[in-house]
Amino acid sequence: MLSFALIFIAAIFFSGIISRTKSIFSGRKGPGIMQPIKDIIRLFRKGAVYSQTSSFVFQIAPTIYFSSVVMAMLIVPFGQSKGLISFNGDFIFFAYVLALGKFFSIISALDTGSSFGGMGASREALYSMFAEPAFFILIGSLALLTGHSSFQEIFSALHLGSYITYALAILATFVLLMIAMIENSRMPIDDPKTHLELTMIHEVMILENSGFDLGLILSAGCLKFAIYGALIVNLFIGIFPYEYTIPLFFITQFLIAITIGTIESFMARFRMGHNAQFIFALTSVSLLIFFGALLILGKFI
């Protein structure tokens, strides 16, 4: 329950901090930190325009996408406190619940009959598929290392053995951060700030969405960032008491947001053809973590 509340709070500020960082780096005055949330709230109050081509899939998809993110949020733990849902292998459930949301957002993009939708949908499906093994090998290795298989148990047992595990946690941070970028279609995979048609993945997928539905999609995006941020925080906090971990949670989320903003300010988007290689390279980083886990367990003898 604690993690749910914390993620929710972090999600409110996350996008704002990213855009604020970007505006500072580019020397603009820029919008306030609360601007993305204000946008979402305004979208919730707006009417909607639906494509004549679209069917019920297009209408229900944003709701399912949002629900899947909320469901995933329930699984994420915080230090000692479990998520609302916690069982052995819950990270598999986590990944597959998010997959349902992805499934629907992809088919809703195809529902409009626009070539933009198809373009975004195809790429979203491809890139998220490539990111999948990185996540599974990462959590699988941590499960191997700790001997547990639920998020909460893995994270709380991670640093009980030795301090080398912090090195693994840093590698894992990189992987999770990149997965967060892929999942949210940010730089260097996709550029959210260019003109709509040129943002090749996520923005073109949601091109036809408007009003309440768009609000749901955008808020799901904010939550997704905060969820991955929370996973990263969990990699480090272990079983520390709450008075340290809660401030640490917000500091880390803040740092992650700033990092993302910085990356977006100084990097250009990859060529589409290179994305797949880049994403697949994440899997090799995950494999490094696996070998690290084997080393710590002393299986390499």
Binding site: G47, V49, Y50, Q52, G211, F212
Partner: peptide
């Protein structure tokens, strides 16, 4: 809310 149905944007 108001809702309308329009052709897909091209």
């Amino acid at each position: 809310r108001t809702q309308s149905s329009q052709p897909t944007w091209n």
